[in-house]
């Protein structure tokens, strides 16, 4: 326990306390909340946001941003479902889905890093382009999964030993891998350095452009994995999938202490941010409170979290 506490550094500990409070409040308000079934349910649902949030945090840490991930979610599920429907091969579909994700990451990164257009604008444009392309291809109808492979179904819906959702396991493994990469590899530390102080990183001889490009690719790649889980859960490539997804991710990550200014924050924090928002939305749902309140709650949380971050930084100046 002591080790865990040390691991969650001061800021993260505060978040963890918030999480516990939310958890306890909901446990008392709804008898269904604190049941194994519900908790497992939440862990499966949140893995979609969690995995994308990991990639998004890596990119923010490197000092860039990608708000096209929501549209990307809808976009890459098309090659996934279509390939499966046509070839009957799940692995081929998954590979193609990930390849498309990587390609989009490369395009975003190329325009932002090599052509010098602000990544916010590039990915804002990409948000339009991908969504338009999705509407165009699908004719604004969902493309159903006709293969009905058990394997594919289990990715998003299956449970290990009947209790732990596979999606949650995938999310946890990816989280642990990237926590390790960001903390303990020179690659991860270089991403922090580039986002934290680009000039110092340049003087240390880093290839800043390549590092940033790789972060764009990681972000798109992990979002594509989220897309696979989502497609498995809803059993189709849906043209409206991922609507407002980017904003949910921003809210969670910023809440988790990852700074929009780059170079600051941890994946542990981001994960706790996702956890808090997921638990709030689950709890509100169980209490039959309008799901639209989630948006309001997210918006208020962003302002408070970022405003607090700014105040803290101004004071330390």
């Amino acid at each position: 326990m002591n080790n865990i506490l040390r691991y969650l550094r001061k800021g993260e500990l505060a978040l963890f306390v918030i999480f516990l409070i939310v958890f306890v409040v909901f446990s008392f308000s709804s008898e269904y909340f604190f049941t194994l079934r519900n908790i497992m349910n939440v862990s499966g649902q949140m893995s979609i946001i969690l995995i994308a949030a990991i990639g998004f945090s890596v990119l923010l840490i490197a000092g860039e941003v990608d708000i096209s991930i929501g549209s990307l979610l809808a976009f890459v599920s098309i090659p996934l479902i279509e390939t499966m429907n046509i070839t009957g091969s799940v692995p081929l579909g998954i590979i193609l889905c990930l390849v498309f994700g990587i390609l989009i990451g490369l395009i975003n990164g190329f325009f932002s890093v090599y052509l010098g257009v602000s990544s916010l604008i590039v990915t804002l444009g990409m948000l339009f382009i991908l969504r338009g392309a999705v509407y165009l291809y699908t004719g604004q109808r969902a493309i159903p999964d006709e293969l009905m492979s058990d394997f594919f179904f289990y990715i998003g819906n299956g449970k290990f030993m009947g209790t732990i959702p596979y999606a949650a396991i995938i999310g946890l493994v990816i989280l642990l891998v990237f926590i390790f990469v960001m903390r303990n590899t020179s690659y991860g530390r270089k991403l922090y350095a580039v986002g934290g102080n680009q000039e110092v990183a340049r003087l240390a001889g880093y290839n800043i452009k390549l590092l940033k490009l790789s972060a764009f690719v990681i972000c798109s790649f992990l979002s594509s994995i989220s897309a696979i889980i989502l497609a498995s859960r809803i059993g189709s490539a849906n043209h409206v999938a991922g609507d407002l997804f980017e904003f949910q991710v921003v809210a969670a990550v910023v809440l988790g202490g990852v700074s929009l200014a780059g170079g600051i924050g941890s994946l542990t924090g981001a994960a706790i941010g996702v956890l808090i928002l997921s638990v709030i939305s689950n709890g509100l749902g169980l209490l039959n409170i309008d799901t639209q309140w989630q948006l309001v709650v997210n918006g208020v949380i962003i302002i408070i979290a970022v405003g607090f971050d700014e105040l803290k930084r101004n004071r330390s100046l």
């Binding site: 530390r189 350095a193 934290g196 102080n197 110092v200 990183a201 003087l203 170079g263 600051i264």
Partner: peptide, 11 residues
């Protein structure tokens, strides 16, 4: 000072 303030001394 031109250091990465989030990093340790050794890093």
């Amino acid at each position: 000072i031109s250091l990465i303030s989030e990093f340790s001394v050794a890093e």
